[in-house]
Design a protein around this nucleic acid. Structure first.
Length: 842
RNA sequence: GGGGACGUAGCCCAACGGCAGAGGCACACGGCUUAGAACCGUGACAGUGUGGGUUCGAAUCCCACCGUCCCCA
């Protein structure tokens, strides 16, 4: 094997690592530890694309680096395998989702293994495995017992034409994805988790973690905590009242109407007969819209008056009550006081329906648009002359004294709707008695297995029903002479991913979800890498469960993930013609920048986009690994640019890193005859410059890995390899160290060369090299000498030259002296090792 | 519609506020070669999207605009 042949080397070392269990997690629970985690994938039918391994390569580099630095490393992988695609495939073909899932997992695993990742596969988890979801059910019971899981009537996407409940992904613009039938929102009994009880802690504890500022911000905004006031509006001639939440109690005098959500329970009661038809028609119409259509997308506000009034507690006047779909039942109390002068949506509504608009904060022109800003309060009796902030306080006090309102905090975050009407999810460990009361399933009956069904689509009929209702033999059972019924909703896909990082710690424990001692050692996750698309939901849900477990004494840390990094998207050029996307394989570049469809000759528009099957721009790692090898692939993905940044894939550029590996290969081996390179010499050699460069490289690469700057780390190793290529003598002590540095990035070739160099133990067992600080510094440096910020000369001097001496030397330079002659020096700037700048005035 | 990230050479990207260049792709030339490939060597190419501001000094900090991508969906 004279030449670098990845097809031989890579499988050889993968088999070696597997046989030797090189990456088995140490059992020891003492000494420094490092837990480095990937967001585990959903094993789809189409396999990995080159975007997946970007994050996995990054974590693998860190894992291998930390092992070499003496850490006990936990670096696991698993499968988030419940989910819609397998179920939809099952509905179409009748194949059990477990079978599809097993096939997809096998394919993903093959692909991951082909890339040489150092996962401890003994710790693999699969959320669909009963041994795993047993504990997902168990954690649900912990929430249930603490009163954090409750049943509520919540609307589902109900498609009468299909007679089935649809997932959000199956609804597009209010129509079913299949068949394009109308979808309405119909209430159904469902489990809800009380995440809002943790809202404040989910905000506050973000201070404890090292996460991208953008992710923290998104979480805070998602939780949407706002301070304001609950106000009670009384109804003339009735005992009932309407409670609203507002962040602007200062504008109460300007509230000229009220709006209830169409679903609001008081609507039926308050609507007089002559308005009932109009109200019913409007409610039916609103049920067909998603929340998004009702709020964000709505251009024209709609609504109808219900024919009843409420009393504004500030003015004492009656104001009309409307229903309108821009008010959601799920936010606040499902009712608002409308202040058209100072709220944009209220203004648009009032403008359209000719409802009076009253200015109560000065500074704008409320006849033209709502004025949101600060200003002095007007037309508001005892608030007049105050600014907005003071008026808020005074109004809250006034309302509290009169018992018609109080300060309140509201969240945009809703409690977590935890039921799905699907087959392929965790069954709830809940049973109902004959009276319909729910009870926890005894823990010794876990796991509650998914029953077999004949087909996997939800039952069709006149009412929404979960799929498991079809499993009638399973649903109803007798125990101790009583009739029972299992819960037939299943849990959402988020459930399994809320705690998988804990199961990795103790994945085979049959008695407990995890051992507390092991948890204490390994937690928290030190580094968590995954896509930015999980910035809110997955991370928020997992943090919520973690806090519940923390309160129960089951985990030892408040937060699960100490440092979070989002890898950037790997994008690729896609091509679009008048009939849609054309697969990249069918496109020719006839001249630079001109792309044509090879078959039709049509000129195509090229753009760089996220990879997607539908866009025909997906690149599979299988092809790249076969052609260039896993090492080149890993190296290229890291060399493309900063990890967090999105970067365009360009297969041609892999050539560069491949050549780098081939040059590294030739440092060690003679490609003509398979002997070691004759230029190899023992020790460090006698080229002082080269020795210095080696020390600098060790320092630089180490710092770059610590800072997750893999692209510049690779560049530094390329520099060293280029120097070694030029050097007449190739010192083994330098090459050995180079290989250890390169090993986390390109482990197969390093293991092979290490072996060829005659080492008895594998490079994966080696210790990270150290460097001498003294040898990383240059003795002589080039100083730039500027006058008024313009470079006028350079000056070579010892690196440790002090300011006075350096300035004196600079002034003595002929060119500089010319500029200083007859001028007044206002300022002398000395940047050690960099430059000198004289600021002068003539 | 809202939010975020990013605009540096033909392309991907480097550059604690201090001489715009680490590395790579592509390109050109030279060496090696019967020739080509591979390999080795050499070198040409930008003043940092635009306009302001702060500073002795701005690719870097601030403001506005333009463009691209991503997220909310």
């Amino acid at each position: 094997m004279p030449k670098y042949d990845h097809l031989t080397i890579e499988p050889k070392w993968q088999a070696f690592w597997e046989e030797k269990q090189s990456f088995k997690t140490p059992e020891s629970l003492s000494g420094p530890k490092y837990y480095v985690l990937d967001m585990f994938p959903y094993p789809s039918g189409s396999g990995l694309h080159v975007g997946h391994p970007e994050g996995y390569t990054a974590t693998d580099i860190v894992a291998r680096y930390k092992r070499a630095n003496g850490f006990n490393v936990l670096h696991p992988m698993g499968w988030d395998a419940f989910g819609l695609p397998a179920e939809q495939f099952a509905i179409k073909t009748g194949t059990h989702p477990a079978i599809t899932t097993a096939q997809n997992v096998a394919n993903f695993k093959r692909q991951l293994k082909s890339l040489g990742f150092s996962y401890d596969w003994e710790r693999e988890v699969n959320t669909t495995d009963p041994d795993y979801y047993k504990w997902t059910q168990w954690i649900f019971l912990q929430l249930y017992k603490k009163g954090l899981a409750y049943i509520a009537e919540v609307p589902v996407n109900w498609c009468p034409a299909l007679g089935t409940v649809l997932a959000n992904e199956e609804v597009i613009d209010g129509k079913s994805e299949r068949g394009d039938h109308p979808v309405i929102r119909q209430p159904m009994s469902q489990w809800v988790l009380a995440i809002t009880k943790y809202a404040d802690r989910l905000i506050e504890d973000l201070e404890l973690v090292d996460w991208p500022a953008g992710v923290k911000k998104k979480q805070v905004e998602w939780i949407g905590r706002s301070r304001g006031c609950d106000i009670v509006f009384s109804l003339p001639g009735r005992d009932e009242t309407i409670r609203v939440f507002t962040t602007r109690p200062d504008t109460l005098f300007g509230a000229t109407y009220m709006v209830l959500a169409p679903e609001h329970p008081l609507v039926d009661l308050l609507t007089p007969d002559e308005h009932k038809d109009a109200v019913k028609a409007y409610r039916d119409q609103a049920a067909r819209k998603s929340d998004l259509d009702r709020t964000e997308k709505a251009k024209d506000k709609t609504g109808v008056p219900i024919g009843a009034n409420a009393i504004n507690p500030a003015t004492g006047k009656e104001i009309p009550i409307w229903i309108a779909d821009y008010v959601l039942m799920s936010y606040g109390t499902g009712a608002i006081m409308a202040v058209p002068g100072h709220d944009t949506r209220d203004w648009e509504f009032a403008d359209r329906f000719e409802i009076p608009i009253v200015e109560v904060v000065s500074g704008g022109d409320v006849t033209k648009e709502a004025y949101i800003g600060d200003g002095l309060i007007v037309n508001s009796d005892f608030l007049n002359g105050l600014n907005v902030a003071d008026a808020k306080e005074k109004m809250i006090n006034w309302l509290e004294e009169r018992g018609t309102g109080k300060a309140a905090i509201n969240y945009k975050l809703r409690d977590w709707l935890f039921s799905r009407q699907r087959y392929w999810g965790e069954p709830f460990p809940i049973r109902f008695d004959e009276e319909g009361n729910h009870h926890a399933l005894p823990e010794d009956q876990l796991p509650l297995l998914l029953p077999e069904v004949e087909d996997y689509s939800p039952p069709q009929g006149d009412d929404p029903q979960p799929t498991l209702n079809k499993a009638t033999d399973w649903v109803n059972f007798k125990e101790d002479g009583k009739s029972w019924r299992y819960e037939t909703n299943t849990m959402p896909q988020w459930a399994g991913s809320c705690w998988y990082y804990l199961r990795y710690i103790d994945p085979k424990n049959g008695d407990k979800a995890w051992d507390l001692e092991k948890e204490k050692y390994w937690m928290p996750v030190d580094l968590y890498i995954g896509g930015a698309e999980h910035a809110v939901l997955h991370l928020l849900y997992a943090r919520f469960w973690h806090k519940v477990l923390y309160d129960a004494g089951l985990v030892s840390t408040k937060e699960p993930f100490t440092k979070l990094v989002n890898q950037g998207l790997i994008t690729a050029q896609s091509y679009r013609g008048k009939d849609g996307y054309v697969h990249a394989d069918l496109v020719d570049e006839t001249k630079p920048g001109t792309f044509v469809n090879r078959e039709t000759g049509e000129e195509l528009e090229a753009q760089i986009e996220k990879m997607a099957k539908s866009k025909g721009n997906v690149v599979s790692p299988d092809v790249i690994v076969a052609q260039y090898g896993a090492d080149s692939f890993r190296l290229y993905e890291m060399f493309m640019g900063p990890l967090e940044q999105s970067k365009p894939w360009n297969t041609q550029s892999i050539e560069g890193v491949r050549r780098f590996l081939e040059r590294t290969w030739r440092l060690v081996l003679d490609t003509e005859n398979d002997n070691l390179n004759a230029a190899l010499v023992d020790g460090w050699g006698n080229d002082q410059q080269l020795i210095k460069e080696a020390h600098k490289t060790i320092k630089g690469v180490t710092g770059d890995i610590e800072g997750i700057r893999f692209n510049t780390a690779i560049s530094k190793m390329m520099v060293l390899v280029n120097s070694l290529t030029k050097a007449k003598q190739k010192p083994r002590d330098i090459i050995n160290r180079l290989l250890i540095l390169l090993n986390p990035f390109a482990p197969h070739i390093c293991e092979e060369l290490w072996d060829r160099l005659g080492h008895d133990t594998p490079i994966t067992a080696e210790t990270w090299p150290t460097f001498e600080e003294e040898l990383t510094k240059e003795e002589l440096i080039q100083m730039v000498v500027q006058v008024n910020g313009k470079k006028r000369d350079t000056l070579e001097m010892a690196a440790d030259t002090d300011k006075d001496s350096a300035l004196a030397q600079a002034k003595a330079l002929d060119k500089i002296a010319g500029y200083l002659d007859g001028a007044q020096i206002i300022k002398e700037i000395f940047v050690p090792g960099r430059l000198i700048n004289f600021v002068v005035r003539k």
